[in-house]
Amino acid sequence: MLNLDAGISAPDEFYAALIDAHRGLTMAESARVNARLILLLANQIGDVAVLRAALLRARDGVAGSAAPERRPDTP
């Protein structure tokens, strides 16, 4: 299951690298980098149950609620 304990071998180094990866980019460019990064990391994790748990945890507290159900455009 989703590991919420400390698991990154060099936290400061990782955090600096994360910020560096976005240096000089516009928000739009950063969004592209983040999207690719998420996909690469998701593949590394692989297990959909873990990924789902991470998605839920990431959304928790944002906009006040869990992801809404898809709503059809018409009845």
Binding site: A31, R32, A35, R36, I38, L39, L40, N43
Partner: peptide
């Protein structure tokens, strides 16, 4: 906008990364 960003990221990665092709 964000689903387009993810869609394009999948397509960009798929050119060189086999993992992205099933997506």
């Amino acid at each position: 906008e964000i689903s387009r960003i993810f869609r394009d990221a999948v397509l960009e990665l798929a050119a060189t990364c086999p993992f992205a092709r099933p997506l």
